[in-house]
Design a protein around this nucleic acid. Structure first.
Lengths: 341, 341
DNA sequence: CTGTTAGCGCCTTCAG
DNA sequence: CTGAAGGCGCTAACAG
């Protein structure tokens, strides 16, 4: 039907207007929700538009409405096994609300400034960030009045809208269950020192252990599989009397630690209990059956998008933090007493 | 320095021009690579620009240059454990070339039409697709003269630029090694029926087996962990005399199959050899040591971006297919003879 | 090298 | 309800 026309590379509202014998503004109105066009005329215009394959040029629209429909999603460790799911969910939910994802995958945290420069240039409507933002960067975003929602991050300084999984509740639960089951000698493998998620989790676990009068051994990690292995080795080297339980700041390290333990002939959870955090896919595999806390990705991403959308609509809304409890996955990598209740 | 000025939400080239006492076009030239501006004037302008926090509005730029700097990246299974790495690499390489990623994560393949509608609207400069595109969709893209590169996909019908990992070479190698080591009774777990990658791999393996006079048992899968488990069960049920080797169309299913085998008391590779395809992270973990073919993600993503960039610069370039050999990872999930050479 | 002049495609008052 | 007219912020010829 439409194949006879010369392959115009771009069809504008003027083309539609001419073909339909109406003014350009009439065409424009047809594509605006709260329009006011005579039904008959609208039908004719829409028919022509379809025929010609016309749809409003989002670029031109943005220029004038000052709404690009773009949301910058800034993510640091795309490879982290947990973010892919987050990204897929964010993307789905954003475009359910008519917004497009402009993706920035950070190679290194130092790239943030370069990323922000592009963010300004593209006049995005808002930002969702799962990356570390410095106070100066937060300030720059705020100064431009750009709505921002942090994902699993806390803002240092000024409050900012954010969505987080409750580290304290999660770690507290894990520690209490482990202690109740008789574990006394603890080791913790942390994530990167500049990761607020890691710091939160480690601090929460340590604090809870302190309440029980226990002090854990510590090993630094990088949130990856190899770190888990290395972390376990390091902890065992530190632990004269051996280790009862290992708390890893994420699942990937917990899995690495389990494998390292087995490689040394330690049974998990027979000789050593191991717990993680996140609830990534592999944690549930037979080989690991990891005892962990699963982040409610569905609810968290929905909240992030909702928070952002609200703030795009009403920029003056105050910052709001939404904290979600994780779900305890018992798994089988930790020796626990049957649930108390 | 710049904090004293009232927080204009948007600063334009006119603001800079006025502040620097030059014309607006002079400002514009300063931001164009091949400019021709008097050094002194340029310095002054750039200083003012920096002071005011000015950078050209990408939206306005796009409208006139007909270059948005946006590349649509369309991916179907973000959760597939293999794509996150691809996405991260694509993103990195694209913005090394000054292009931004407009991400479309497909929920269902049926969403493609909706995605394409948005792609048109945003006047992207090109598309990289790791998703199934129907002939009509390919035609629509071609008709608009939009450069397109398929990632690990073949076009049905008209040729299209693409980057693939050589399934035939990979499966051939795996099969030959397995046969050489004495395996005779084969099972294959395929991916989704509409996945060209799956079809290619299964066909290649089957064809190679045929050359050896062997006919494999088949089980359908969905590329996920659970499919691997189910696939193994299904194959064992079909196989009266037992199974020597299992070829999974991807690593995730291979891992699922390994776990299912172990759950039934079968040793891998003692009782059953298992091979996969992709070389995802978990394949290398101790628990699996999967024998597989690793896709050269670095080279493949670089090629995809290069192919696309070339075609954006010169739209008339003919379609080109780049085929990359995967790297054989011996692992330890298959009983193989030492390498022939 | 520089400023002036037209638009890019569209939305949005503003009179009819 | 409808068309005409004026930009959004910028680039790209043009004359100087």
């Amino acid at each position: 039907m439409a194949a006879d026309r010369p392959p115009r590379t771009t069809v504008t509202s003027y083309d539609v207007a001419r073909a339909a014998g109406v003014s350009q503004s009439a065409v424009s109105r047809c594509f605006k929700p709260g329009a006011s066009v005579a039904p008959a005329k609208r039908d004719r215009i829409m028919a022509v538009a379809r025929e010609l394959g016309y749809a409003p040029n989002a670029i031109a629209q943005s220029l004038i409405t000052k709404r690009s429909g773009l949301v910058a999603v800034i993510i640091s460790n795309l490879t982290n096994l947990y973010y892919p799911e987050v990204l897929a969910e964010l993307s789905r939910r954003l475009d359910a609300r008519g917004m497009r994802v402009l993706l920035f995958a950070l190679q290194a945290e130092s790239d943030v400034d370069a990323v922000l420069a592009e963010v300004w240039r593209y006049r995005v409507d808002g930002i969702i960030a799962a990356a570390r933002l410095l106070p100066a960067q937060l300030a720059a975003i705020a100064e431009r009045g750009l709505p921002l929602v942090l994902y699993n991050r806390l803002s240092e300084g000024e409050p900012v809208a954010s969505v987080c999984c409750d580290s304290v509740a999660g770690e507290t639960l894990l520690i209490d269950r482990l202690v109740a089951a008789g574990h006394r000698r603890f080791g913790i493998i942390s994530g990167p020192a500049d990761s607020s998620v890691s710091n939160e989790r480690v601090a929460a676990a340590t604090a809870r252990l302190a309440l029980h009068g226990l002090v854990p051994l510590l090993a630094p990690g990088q949130f990856d599989h190899a770190s888990g292995r290395a972390g376990l080795e390091s902890l065992l080297a530190q632990a004269d009397g051996g280790l009862d339980a290992l708390v890893a700041a994420n699942d990937l390290m917990a899995i690495g630690a389990i494998e390292a333990a087995r490689a040394r002939g330690l049974a998990v959870p027979g000789d050593l209990s191991v717990v993680g955090f996140d609830g990534v896919g592999p944690a549930g595999w037979d080989s690991f059956r990891l005892t962990t806390i699963r982040q409610p990705v569905q609810r968290m991403t929905e909240a992030a998008v909702a928070l952002l959308a609200e703030r795009i609509a009403q920029p003056e809304l105050p910052p709001e933090r939404r904290l979600f409890a994780g779900e305890f996955l018992p798994g089988a990598s930790a020796r626990l007493d049957p649930c108390p209740e």
